[in-house]
């Protein structure tokens, strides 16, 4: 058993005072976000075939695909409920045509819940 002394951390702690802090002043300084971080969804209306696999697999009902064209000439629109979204990315995996991709934009905070319901065409 070693001899125990109080304040044994001082050998590391004292030099730390003069080192660069490990924290970042985030909103004022940029944060490093990886490129394939799971952030806001992006939607490619051209690629979408309206199979609604994403709607079926979304655990949070955060995504809606609506046909805004006619029955013959289909055109799709997506509504994302970003306040419901849990950023799991299952819709991206489920999509057979890669119409949904996650961007690394994480700065989605808003004071109004309605701003988090976004439509993409």
């Amino acid at each position: 058993m070693k001899k125990k002394i109080p304040g044994a951390i001082i050998k590391t702690a004292f030099p730390t005072i003069f080192q660069k802090p490990a924290t970042v002043g985030y909103p004022f300084e940029p944060l490093k976000i990886d490129d394939d971080y799971r952030g806001e969804l992006t939607y490619d209306a051209e690629a979408c075939i309206g199979c609604s696999m994403c709607m079926r697999d979304c655990p949070a009902n955060a995504i809606e695909i609506i046909n805004i064209g006619t029955k013959e000439d289909k055109k799709f629109k997506a509504i994302f409920h970003l306040d419901h979204c849990i950023y799991c990315g299952q819709c991206v995996d489920s999509c057979p045509k890669d119409a949904l991709v996650m961007s690394n934009n994480i700065e989605l905070a808003s004071l109004d819940r309605n701003n988090l319901k976004v439509e993409r065409e």
């Binding site: 702690a13 004292f14 730390t16 005072i17 802090p21 490990a22 924290t23 970042v24 002043g25």
Partner: peptide
């Protein structure tokens, strides 16, 4: 600030 720097924080 000294306490924060000791803990490697900005303070």
């Amino acid at each position: 600030i000294v306490y924060a720097r000791l803990q490697n924080r900005q303070g």
